[in-house]
Amino acid sequence: MTRGLIVHRIAPGSSVQDMGRSGYRAFGVSRGGAADRLALAEGAALLGQSTDCAALELPGSGGVFEATAPLRIALTGAPMRASLDGAPLVWNASHAVPANARIEIGGATAGSYGYLHVGGGFDVPLRLGSRAAHLAAGIGAVVQAGEVLPVGEDTRSETGLCLPPDTRFDGGTLRMVESFQTGLFNEPTRAQFAETVFTRDARANRMGLRLESGVDGFAPEGGLNILSESILPGDIQVTGDGTPYLLLGESQTTGGYPRIGTVIPADLPRAVQTPAWGRLRFRFVSRDEALQAQTRMQEYLRNLTRSRQPLVRDPSQIRDLLGYQLISGVTAGDAPGTKE
């Protein structure tokens, strides 16, 4: 059988994603790609492959999968309970998966989007230069139970590596810079925005998320008659009733509702990983501060491969633990556990 991953069960809204498409904005197609681009880069680093490799994006929970051939996998993004033929799998790590083994991925314990990467990447067709499903544009589609996702050739073999866990999965403060429409909002409205604690509404998708607060509207005067203008990921758009929406990679390319500011690229992974009802605040920062954050993020991405560490086995997760002679405090050299 060809290299592939059989999908027995999968969370609604799951899709194959890569870094998205560049060059089609003039035709109305936004970049799209993985909601959490950092998670995509982490998976590529764990498997020692290019960030161009496509992975499976799992919103909220995972599914049940079966390898048709020996595969390497990595699990990144929102931590989820995962197991391989019943044995627990460490998140944010790479693992070897034998042919016919079953991978089960449960619900997220924090955050929103988990990622299942395979060595060689998912080899779905390129469309407009990318393998990413763009659900809003109708390019590609969500992955459904019964599909077999083709896996590309894998030229590497290392597994059992992990990356330190991150803290971007519980909301928090997002830094934003002023944008070209910030001036449409008066000073009291901007100050109020920066002081408000928002909750991420359950209504959220790859296009954007709705920000809920008890505050009575952030709309500017005359905001319904401005000319439609380019949108970029991170823009916070305020609709006519004063509700802010944070726009993400798969948003529309232009829009007519005014934007109060733009979340900096370094904080977008935290923004998209905020779980439903998670709390968010916004802080306007200077361009200099935003630029420093961008430089640090680029350094972090460059150093990802070097940050990998060998996975240390947690004794509580070793299945044949009873095979160890724990009582005497000495483990026999031929204990079954050492073969694992």
Partner: peptide
């Protein structure tokens, strides 16, 4: 400027 990485 349009955000950190854009110009209009």
């Amino acid at each position: 400027p349009a955000g950190l990485d854009g110009v209009l």
